[in-house]
């Protein structure tokens, strides 16, 4: 922990983008400023770095270690004979469920991402810009936010009611349009649709709030000026709002990808016991089942490490595509 920390600090370069010091005493002043800035950065980053190391660093290291073992219920670290045995099991498809689970996960993450990053953008723009009545907009936002506020158990209960084969509104409506007898939680393409919707409703509001608060920071003058020049709402959205939302879009997309890869609680709560046959067993749920139902903590850790690696690669791709380097730079003078 301390090594990483001190490296970070040693490497600190106290160069603000704009130099302030001028005049005769400039040298001494800037030296003092330098010192105070070092102190400043250390002070500002310490709590955060501590949290990062203790809450993430240690568990991470531990799970890498665990993935080389056959750790079971007794929680002892016995290293496996071929050290990478768990990984062989995954990649040589010695476990027949791995490819199925991988497929489900790709479908799940891909489709839900469209809602969580794409549809939430539509929601954000519409409720922040197109719906002018602030009260209406905030009520709508509240409604969209409801699933996120609801404890998982209740949320699962509500979905079980909604998709109930006999009384659920979904079954009733779907029988009108010729989908009679569809069991929304069990029959494969439908159950996967429900899975996507369940998490889409939770994720949509997250992106929406980020987009809305970003849109609200756009100076109204810019929009008024464009309007005065005869721009339509569509032009405003396309030419002013969307370009300014580049950063939030990158953020929400990459973040939601990672969140989705790691999310399983809602699926666990709703499809308790029949997730695999219903085609909703995603990778992280599989990891959970391996650990807390199969008690194969070592194998579970290996699964988790594979998952984290994939997430890492995805993030790298996102950063490349969106020009992350530019985003990484400290903020400069710009609106």
């Amino acid at each position: 922990m301390s090594k990483k920390f001190s490296n970070l600090l040693r490497g600190y370069v106290a160069k603000p983008k704009v130099s302030i010091s001028t005049g005769a005493l400039g040298g001494l002043k800037s030296f003092l400023k330098e010192k105070s800035r070092t102190f400043f950065v250390i002070a500002f980053l310490t709590p955060f770095l501590a949290a990062l190391t203790i809450m993430y660093g240690l568990p991470c290291a531990l799970s890498v270690l665990m993935s080389f073992t056959d750790m079971g219920l007794s929680f002892e670290l016995h290293f496996l004979n071929p050290l990478l045995k768990n990984y062989y099991t995954i990649f040589h498809v010695a476990d027949p469920r791995v490819p199925v689970v991988a497929q489900t996960t790709i479908l799940y993450v891909g489709c839900t991402l469209l809602i969580n990053a794409g549809f939430s953008l539509v929601l954000g723009v519409l409720t922040a810009y197109c719906i002018r009545n602030e009260n209406v907009a905030s009520v709508l936002r509240l409604l969209w936010f409801l699933p996120r506020m609801t404890p998982v158990i209740i949320y699962a209960l509500l979905w079980l009611w909604f998709t109930d084969p006999t009384y659920g509104p979904l079954s009733i409506v779907s029988s009108w349009i010729g989908l009679k007898g569809v069991r929304w939680l069990l029959d494969k393409p439908y159950s996967q649709l429900v899975m996507i919707a369940v998490n889409g409703y939770i994720g949509a509001s997250w992106g929406m709030v980020i987009y809305v608060s970003s849109i609200k920071t756009i100076p109204l003058e810019i929009i008024y000026a464009a309007k005065a020049d005869g721009a339509t709402d569509w032009d405003v959205i396309r030419r002013i709002i969307l370009p300014l939302l580049k950063w939030p879009i990158l953020f929400v997309t990459s973040w939601q990808t990672l969140s989705l890869i790691g999310s399983y609680t809602e699926i666990l709560a709703i499809w308790d016991g029949y997730s695999y046959t219903s085609g909703v067993e995603v990778w992280s749920l599989f990891t959970y089942h391996t650990a807390f139902e199969g008690y194969r903590f070592g194998y579970s850790a290996a699964l988790a490490i594979v998952m984290a690696t994939v997430a890492l690669i995805l993030v790298a791709i996102y950063f490349k595509v969106f020009g992350f380097k530019r985003m990484l730079e400290p903020s400069r003078i710009e609106v």
């Binding site: 809450m55 993430y56 991470c60 959970y288 988790a304 993030v315």
Partner: peptide
């Protein structure tokens, strides 16, 4: 960003 993808079970 990366730590975010570690499944909570392990923590």
């Amino acid at each position: 960003v990366v730590v975010h993808s570690i499944p909570g079970v392990l923590f």
